[in-house]
């Protein structure tokens, strides 16, 4: 993939990158850092991308790794206050459905974004998050129940 192709493709995922990062690091300034770091890492590692059609998966996997590394480094935990602060701080920009998602537990939130918003399959999410398929499915089931309850 050429540099121009890379720049053009990564722009398509600007929104997805940010939301996935927020779901993991639970802080929106940290999410900006993670996305920037991911873009640079992805460009440096572009040679390791074997199939261009897998670009999105490959890119999101790098982001997940970078985000988790930051969480470990900062020894951060999921504080409901932080999520609430993010939601209320950007109230005007957030629709009801996103407010629901951002209020979910961190582990459910990431899976919801990957499955419903980004369209990844269960197996892909399992690979990306290094979780057993069964864990992804049970978290998805938990998230689905909560979302349907909230949507009703």
């Amino acid at each position: 993939m050429s540099k121009d192709d890379f720049i053009s493709q990564i722009q398509e995922y600007k929104r997805e990158l940010f939301l996935l990062a927020v779901s993991i690091v639970n802080d929106y300034y940290d999410a900006e850092d993670v996305v920037a770091e991911t873009m640079l890492t992805a460009y440096e590692k572009l040679d390791s991308l074997k199939k261009e059609e897998r670009f999105k998966f490959w890119l999101m996997q790098i982001l997940v790794n970078n985000a988790r590394m930051l969480v470990r480094k900062n020894k951060r935990f999921v504080y409901v206050d932080e999520i609430d602060a993010y939601v209320s701080g950007h109230e005007k920009n957030i629709s009801d459905i996103w407010e629901m998602v951002l209020s979910l537990d961190s582990e459910l939130k990431t899976i919801v974004i990957l499955y419903y918003y980004q369209g990844f399959k269960v197996k892909e999410i399992s690979k990306m998050l290094s979780l057993p398929v069964g864990t992804v499915k049970s978290r998805l089931a938990g998230a689905r129940k909560k979302l349907r309850l909230l949507l009703d």
Partner: peptide, 22 residues
Amino acid sequence: ENEILLPDSYERRFEDTLNKIS
């Protein structure tokens, strides 16, 4: 159908990083 608006600071940061890569 209910896209979330991205913060301005993120939009700027994203563009800056693209410029770095270029």
